[in-house]
Amino acid sequence: MDFVILSLVMLGIGVYGLLTNRQLLKVFISIELIATAATLNFVMLATSQGLGQAFLILAFSTDTAVSGVILALLVIVSKKYGTSDMGKIIQMLQDKGTSEDEVQ
């Protein structure tokens, strides 16, 4: 049993989800998984138990700040475009750009 490989697999799953998912909430979940993989490494690879947990607390505080920013962006985007699907949002922006070009 090796926690380095476990956290590497979790990191891989998170990065794959980040690259392939179109839903903003799923992107958020992917970032959470990547952060969890990193914090798992902090605790398991620390040369001292206390030091590893101190690093984990610092990593959690950063992770929580990042979560706040992502959720704020998610609320703004969902209110503005009525959806949280990145594919639909990009399509809307392209349609808008095309109609503006036609007017000009």
Binding site: T47, S48, Q49, G50, L51, Q53, A54
Partner: peptide, 9 residues
Amino acid sequence: APDISIGDA
């Protein structure tokens, strides 16, 4: 390393 308590760390 010698074990450091979480407070010290």
